[in-house]
Amino acid sequence: MTDATPMRAGSRLEKVLRSGRFAVTAELNAPDSADPEDVYRNALVLSEVCDGINATDGSGANCHMSSLGCCALLTRAGYDPVLQVACRDRNRIAIQGDLLGAAAMGVKNVMCLTGDDVSNGDQPEAKRVFDFDSVQLLRVARMMRDEGVFLSGRELTTPPKFFLGAASNPFAPPFDWRPLRLAKKIEAGADFIQTQYCFDIPRLQQFMQRVRDLGLHEKVFILVGVGPLRSDKVANFMRTKVPGVWIPDEVVDRLAKTPRKKKKAEGIKICIELIQQIREIPGVHGIHLMAYRQEETVAQIVRESGVLEHRRLDFDEPHTRRAAKHPPAGSSHQDPTAF
């Protein structure tokens, strides 16, 4: 897969995936603050263990710092963020403008999402926009990159370079349609996929079987979503209140049986076990960690799961501010093929 397709944007995430290594991305929880340090503090913890930091776009329809704002801060500090773009809040004019702005700020990875509905968030009175759906958004982002035009056909002086991502949820009905929807997203331009939380390995295996039958795993990089559960209470909240999250009873029971003080450690253990099982499934290219306001836990999970093996954890852009403080040793990282 990696040889035939040209490098889309050359982001760290793309290089790691194309080199055939197991990639790790993690979600940065956008702060409810105007202080850049609140972004940097979280990013510093995550950057040591992951290849791409996802800046969420009003996750759960709750208002936080914008994903574009987070990404602008992150690229300034030399990180390689994944800009999440949801269709919920902006129409086609705003989205295309934001994509150009993001590219100009140095954003190379873009994740195209539908977005959680406003009724889930802190401001359910808001207007739903949904001018595009995620497939149309993907297609438009690809059009801007490959054709160098706006949707209207007006030409871009310099087209953006994006490594395009999309979401998939193998754990929500209609199960037969999910792999076909993935195919649609690949046709629309998806280069990588990040899935919803996985707590159900058999169902993921079924999904991946179908994906392999369709040959989709050779056309796209699939990163499976995982995250720690702090307690059975949190698990119950997530599976009833967070849209699209499926947690089987076994997992909740296992946490419920654990003594209160050990619940957090048990949640981490479950997560690590899941990662190790997910890693064995053919066609899976990485994991995507999501944990609401638990950056330290995410870092611990990645380290203990052993997915990074002996990979060097340096930045691959030595000219940037933060990277300059920790100059990378050796020079092989400069060459994308040798990454």
């Binding site: 269709c87 539908t114 959680d116 509905d117 759906d133 995620s134 929500a172 929807r181 649609k184 849209p243």
Partner: peptide, 21 residues
Amino acid sequence: CPKNLRNGPCGGVRANGNCEV
């Protein structure tokens, strides 16, 4: 579809096959 999706279901479909919204 409350999200006006024209290319397939969102990821928020409930386990019983009902709408997220």
